[in-house]
Simulated scan of single mutants.
Amino acid sequence: MLGPFRGTLPTFGGLLWKRSWRMSPDQKSRLRKRMQVVDKNIEVLYESLKIQGQETTGHPKLDYLMHTFPKENEMSATDKYTTFNKNSKNYRKSVHHVPKWTKLSFRENPKYF
């Protein structure tokens, strides 16, 4: 059929998006390594402030990151690779479907999700 309503590949079937529906093992390993680097940087910053003699209690965000922010090895696989999304079927969405997912931290989710 010719004209403005002719069929295209997406309307005839097939993938509309080139994004995979699940993360590859390589993506998962790079994500874990990024999380480990963040954990190491938090520890180095905390220890360097201790060595300089500054009080770490004066930095509430740093205290929060050091003591209550979950570390990569403490997190479950569900928390590592998915994030809360109120519009999804089970309220979880794969991390790689979030825009700029390599630049964000997904370690905090609502309780019981």
Rank of each mutant, 00 (worst) to 15 (best):
L2A: 13
G3K: 05
G3N: 02
G3D: 07
P4H: 05
G7H: 05
G7A: 05
T8L: 00
P10C: 09
P10D: 12
P10G: 15
T11C: 03
G13C: 04
L16D: 11
W17P: 03
K18W: 02
K18R: 02
K18E: 15
S20N: 13
R22M: 07
R22P: 01
R22V: 03
M23E: 09
M23H: 02
M23W: 02
P25M: 06
P25D: 10
P25C: 07
D26F: 08
D26S: 11
D26T: 10
K28V: 04
S29F: 02
S29G: 01
R32Q: 11
Q36I: 03
Q36M: 13
V37R: 10
D39I: 08
E43K: 10
E43A: 11
L45V: 01
L45Y: 00
L45D: 08
I51T: 15
G53P: 05
G53I: 00
E55T: 15
T56A: 12
T56L: 15
T57F: 12
G58T: 15
G58M: 14
H59C: 03
H59I: 01
H59E: 02
H59M: 00
P60L: 05
P60V: 14
K61S: 04
L62G: 06
D63F: 08
D63Y: 02
Y64I: 14
L65V: 05
M66N: 15
H67M: 01
T68G: 02
T68Q: 02
F69G: 00
F69C: 03
P70W: 04
P70R: 14
K71M: 14
E72K: 06
E72P: 08
N73D: 10
N73A: 14
E74I: 03
E74V: 06
M75I: 01
M75K: 06
A77V: 14
T78A: 12
T78Q: 15
D79V: 06
K80C: 06
K80P: 01
K80T: 10
Y81I: 07
Y81C: 05
T82E: 08
T83N: 01
T83G: 01
F84M: 00
F84T: 00
N85F: 12
N85P: 01
K86H: 14
S88C: 07
K89G: 00
K89C: 12
N90P: 04
N90Y: 08
N90V: 05
N90D: 11
Y91W: 07
H96F: 03
H96Q: 03
V98C: 12
P99L: 12
K100R: 10
W101S: 12
K103G: 04
L104Y: 15
L104F: 11
L104D: 09
R107Q: 01
R107M: 00
N109Y: 01
N109H: 15
P110K: 10
K111P: 00
K111I: 04
F113W: 11
F113A: 06
